[in-house]
């Protein structure tokens, strides 16, 4: 039986990365109602695989890899009718523009949904969450050049979609 991690070390891991894990899960389309369970699953997996973590990647990328897999599993279990990421809304300057901002947020989310899942994933992780492409490569095991290609395609496709929607977004 594998040795369980020291609870203090695990507590530090949890404290240091919970926020990023939570955010990433939502970015990757986990329904807000399922984020609790998904985040819990990420850290349960980390606990169980603690001995497997050999420092070849950072804790950040190690947890990102787990979160990506958990998000993928969770999305599969979500009912198709469930809206994806309704939390992804606009940040607005004040309550008076909240409704308009929310609408724009929905439009942006709708544009993102038109991207292929793999492209959307790398676009959100790199251009929204700030991970580097090598970090995503380390977390997913996907070839670096493949990820750059996906990111390039995703950006181009998203650009085209934004241009098409530009008038409405304004």
């Amino acid at each position: 039986m594998e040795k369980a991690p020291d609870t203090a070390d695990f507590g530090a891991l949890y404290a240091g990365h919970f926020r990023a894990v939570w955010r990433t899960l939502q970015r990757l389309g986990v329904h807000p109602g399922s984020v609790d369970d998904a985040a819990q699953e990420v850290f349960v997996t980390a606990w169980r695989r603690w001995a497997d973590f050999e420092g070849r990647s950072t804790e950040r990328t190690w947890l990102l890899g787990i979160a990506i897999r958990v998000a993928s599993d969770t999305r599969r279990k979500q009912r198709p009718t469930e809206p994806v990421s309704p939390e992804l809304q606009m940040t607005g300057p004040g309550p008076e523009s909240a409704a308009a901002s929310k609408e724009v947020g929905r439009r942006v989310e709708a544009l993102l949904q038109q991207l292929e899942p793999e492209r959307r994933e790398v676009l959100l992780l790199v251009d929204v969450e700030g991970y580097s492409v090598p970090e995503v490569a380390s977390a997913t095991g996907v070839n670096l050049n493949t990820l750059y290609t996906r990111l390039r395609s995703a950006r181009q496709q998203f650009e085209d979609l934004v241009k098409r929607e530009a008038e409405e977004l304004r």
């Binding site: 955010r23 942006v108 929204v128 998203f158």
Partner: peptide
């Protein structure tokens, strides 16, 4: 700008 409009989904 469109991407930055996505709300930071902080817990």
């Amino acid at each position: 700008a469109a991407l930055s409009a996505l709300k930071a989904a902080d817990p």
